[in-house]
Simulated assay, not measured.
Amino acid sequence: MDRLTEMQIYVAVAECEGFAAAARRLGISPPVATRAVAELEARLGVKLLNRTTRYVRVTDAGQRYLEDARRVVVAADEADEAAIGVNGEPRGHLTVTAPVLFGRMYVMPGIVDYLQRFPATDVAALFVDRVVNLLEEGVDVALRIGDLDDSSFHALRVGSVRRLLCASPDYIARCGLPAHPNELVNHQLIVAMNLGTSVEWRFMQQGKTLSARTPLAIRIKPRLSVTSNDSAIDAAVRGLGIARVMSYQIAQELEQGKLKILLSEFEPDAVPVHIVHREGRYSSAKVRQFIDLLAERLRANKSLN
Results as ranks from 00 to 15, higher is better:
residue 31 P to H: 08
residue 77 D to G: 09
residue 121 T to E: 00
residue 93 H to L: 05
residue 82 A to D: 11
residue 257 G to W: 01
residue 197 T to I: 12
residue 203 F to K: 03
residue 88 G to M: 02
residue 219 R to N: 03
residue 104 R to I: 15
residue 16 C to H: 02
residue 193 M to E: 01
residue 171 Y to R: 11
residue 63 Q to S: 08
residue 89 E to G: 07
residue 116 Q to A: 05
residue 152 S to I: 14
residue 194 N to H: 03
residue 176 G to V: 05
residue 102 F to T: 08
residue 60 D to P: 02
residue 146 G to I: 13
residue 238 R to Y: 02
residue 61 A to E: 06
residue 305 N to Q: 10
residue 173 A to S: 03
residue 84 I to C: 07
residue 252 Q to D: 15
residue 145 I to D: 10
residue 51 R to Y: 09
residue 219 R to E: 04
residue 181 P to R: 02
residue 30 P to G: 11
residue 90 P to R: 13
residue 89 E to M: 14
residue 137 E to H: 09
residue 176 G to I: 06
residue 103 G to D: 06
residue 191 V to N: 03
residue 290 F to W: 05
residue 227 T to Y: 05
residue 91 R to A: 07
residue 89 E to A: 11
residue 167 A to G: 12
residue 267 E to L: 12
residue 87 N to I: 04
residue 51 R to M: 10
residue 193 M to A: 00
residue 8 Q to F: 00
residue 242 I to E: 00
residue 23 A to P: 08
residue 278 R to N: 03
residue 124 A to V: 11
residue 118 F to I: 10
residue 97 T to K: 02
residue 34 T to S: 05
residue 278 R to W: 01
residue 63 Q to D: 10
residue 99 P to D: 15
residue 133 N to L: 12
residue 53 T to W: 10
residue 48 L to W: 02
residue 116 Q to H: 06
residue 76 A to Q: 07
residue 24 R to W: 11
residue 113 D to Q: 15
residue 154 H to Y: 15
residue 62 G to C: 11
residue 113 D to P: 12
residue 18 G to D: 01
residue 210 L to T: 02
residue 230 D to H: 08
residue 265 E to D: 15
residue 170 D to R: 04
residue 71 R to V: 05
residue 101 L to D: 05
residue 30 P to Q: 06
residue 292 D to L: 13
residue 82 A to F: 07
residue 231 S to H: 04
residue 29 S to F: 09
residue 192 A to V: 06
residue 60 D to K: 07
residue 103 G to P: 07
residue 158 V to A: 00
residue 149 D to W: 00
residue 121 T to A: 01
residue 2 D to C: 11
residue 185 V to N: 14
residue 255 E to I: 13
residue 133 N to S: 15
residue 244 R to V: 14
residue 259 L to G: 02
residue 66 L to P: 00
residue 84 I to L: 14
residue 50 N to C: 07
residue 292 D to T: 14
residue 237 V to A: 00
residue 235 A to M: 12
residue 154 H to S: 15
residue 2 D to L: 13
residue 279 E to P: 05
residue 116 Q to I: 05
residue 104 R to H: 15
residue 278 R to K: 08
residue 118 F to K: 05
residue 239 G to I: 01
residue 258 K to N: 05
residue 290 F to A: 04
residue 7 M to S: 03
residue 172 I to C: 03
residue 33 A to R: 09
residue 54 R to H: 04
residue 23 A to F: 07
residue 198 S to L: 08
residue 58 V to P: 01
residue 24 R to C: 10
residue 60 D to Q: 07
residue 13 V to Q: 10
residue 154 H to V: 15
residue 80 D to S: 08
residue 243 A to N: 08
residue 63 Q to F: 09
residue 276 V to M: 13
residue 217 A to W: 06
residue 282 Y to H: 09
